[in-house]
Design a protein around this nucleic acid. Structure first.
Length: 503
RNA sequence: GGUCCUGUGGCCGAGUGGCUAGGCAGAGCUCUGCAAAAGCUUCUACAGCGGUUCGAAUCCGCUCGGGACCUCCA
């Protein structure tokens, strides 16, 4: 079997993954800013890195997964009205800042549960780590890479770049940007006079009087800059160097670039070995964003209450939709694509459910159908390699889909139950369970473990069977059609039996 | 303007220098009282133009199109 490879944004190539400490992995993923409700775009990184987390654990690693909550509110680009997003909205809604932050944090957690994401090991908040951030800023200042101006502190990008280029940690190492170009192309902004250089970024920002969220610091009352929280918290919980840093591609610059600079000054090394970035979800070819007015909130997605949506899409449908694409490709949203995902998921899930019901022959060592046996074995064997190849979940799913007709044919008796060896049948069961449930985190949203409902349906099925035998098709069709309207689909099986699924 | 990514059949999407991706939709057939489900078969591809090569959707160049980042952003 191949070994796990990730595409490392830092080196711009696929690399075999090995952890710094054998058997253990430290992973930091940039979490949400809880100044508003999470939208469809947020689903991608958190599902993607949930897969990374699940897969690493599946491979036997003990993983510490740190995903922060940004609740301190990053200020806008310097030069514009300095305003804290969270504070501004809090005033509008007449809520305490922390009350607002709590509300959206709760909503975020709700969405994560809906998606069946495993909780991170540590979920630190920015507001809970103000002290760590201040200490880190002080260290950067002590080394001469930051300066104070009017109660704000800025990172001296040019000096950092000059000194650290020789150490292989130039500013732009992650994003591929050239600092000199940056200096020329950065837009002219108002009130830049505080900064020595246009490329400098804020570590600490002086709080204007109307600013509600504020903390005491050596530089007066203010709040932390955009990038320092992730550096401070990843350093605290994962150390100076850890294995994986993840996030959306849009965070690569400036956010992650700045994190590297901050950590490099403090710890003299790039904080993470592997930098993984998921691509964006687009709607009609455009990234979701307030400026495009095409933001679909997760609650709207699940309920279908957005004008773009022609129907509601369940969390598992969305999860499956995301898994059908490689995480580094853009994924374009459309109702048609989501509906295709919904049907595809149902098809594979029903086959999976069926597979789990099969009673495997005890000692079938010679396949009744050698060609099929070989085909199945090859497909099953390729799954791990595809997953190891930078998490090609799309290809793994395609492989599993190839086996769906086999499963259905066995069920319908079109393929004899001795066609495949016991070993292959058991392998098939194992792989379906491992990938769909353990690694992909899919679950049955229509689970019907209600025994009373089962009994009622069994009765109805018997009545319908009697009606059909009497050729009373009016009755049998009425039962079938009305149940379908109620969301229960009856299926007449080849053997004369009858099964049902919730739709 | 700068940096980078991308262009696959009706839709969504994998993909490697030569070997069926897969899903959804469509068509035909089988099964069925009729459906549904399922099975089998099947139609539409690799933006365009050059080049490298025995051979390219896959490598290179150009043209055209789309997108991301450069500003909070998943």
């Amino acid at each position: 079997m191949s070994s796990l490879q990730f595409y490392n944004s830092l080196t711009r190539q696929k690399e075999v993954f090995s952890s710094l400490i054998p058997g253990r992995v430290g992973m930091y993923v940039c979490g949400p800013t809880v100044s508003g409700e999470s939208h469809l775009g947020h689903a991608r990184p958190f599902i993607t890195f949930d897969i990374v987390y699940r897969y690493l654990r599946h491979l036997g690693y003990q993983v510490r997964y740190v995903r922060n909550i940004t609740d301190a509110g990053h200020f806008e680009e310097e030069g514009r009205e300095s305003e804290d997003k969270i504070s501004k909205k809090a005033i509008l809604e007449k809520m305490e800042p922390m009350e607002l932050v709590q509300k959206y944090t709760n909503l975020f957690h709700w969405a994560m549960r809906e998606f069946n994401n495993v909780e991170p090991s540590i979920e630190p908040t920015a507001t809970g780590h103000i002290v760590e951030q201040i200490v880190m800023i002080q260290r950067i200042m002590a080394d001469g890479y930051a300066y104070e101006a009017n109660g704000s502190v800025y990172f001296d990008v040019e000096k950092y770049h000059r000194d650290f280029s020789a150490k292989g940690m130039q500013y732009g190492i992650l994003s591929g940007r050239v600092l000199d170009d940056q200096l020329e192309t950065t837009r002219e902004l108002e009130s830049q006079e505080e900064k020595r250089n246009k490329a400098d970024f804020a570590l600490w920002k002086h709080a204007a009087p109307e600013h509600i969220m504020r903390w005491q610091s050596p530089w007066g009352e203010g709040f932390p800059g955009w990038h320092i929280e992730c550096s401070a918290m990843s350093n605290k919980y994962l150390g100076a160097e850890f294995d994986i840093h993840g996030g959306g591609m849009d965070l690569q610059f400036p956010h992650h670039e700045c994190e590297i600079a901050q950590s490099a000054v403090c710890n003299h090394q790039i904080p993470a070995k592997f930098w993984l970035h998921n691509n964006m979800i687009t709607i009609n070819g455009r990234k979701m964003g307030k400026s495009y007015n095409n933001v679909i909130k997760l609650s709207e997605l699940f309920s279908g209450s957005h004008e773009i949506l022609t129907q509601a899409y369940s969390p598992m449908t969305v999860r499956f939709f995301i898994l059908q694409t490689h995480y580094r490709s853009t994924l374009d949203f459309s109702n048609e694509a989501l509906q295709a995902a919904e049907k595809g998921l149902r098809r594979i899930w029903e086959a999976f459910t069926q597979l789990n019901k099969f009673v495997v022959l005890d000692n079938n060592i010679s396949a009744g159908d050698p060609d099929l046996e070989q085909h199945c074995f090859e497909v099953l064997s390729a799954l791990d390699d595809d997953m190891n190849d930078d998490l090609n979940t799309a290809k793994v799913l395609a492989g599993l889909f190839e086996l769906v007709p086999v499963i259905n044919s066995i069920k319908d008796g079109l393929i004899k139950n001795n066609a495949l060896t016991t070993a292959t049948m058991l392998l098939m069961k194992e792989k379906f369970n491992t990938f769909l449930v353990d690694i992909f985190g899919l679950k049955d949203e229509k689970k019907h473990d209600d025994q009373k409902l089962g009994a009622v349906l069994q009765l109805i099925a018997d009545i319908r069977k009697d009606a059909r035998e009497k050729k009373d098709y009016a009755t049998s069709d009425k039962i079938r059609n009305q149940l379908l309207e109620a969301g229960i689909q009856l299926k007449d099986e080849k053997d004369g039996g009858l099964s049902w699924v919730l739709v």
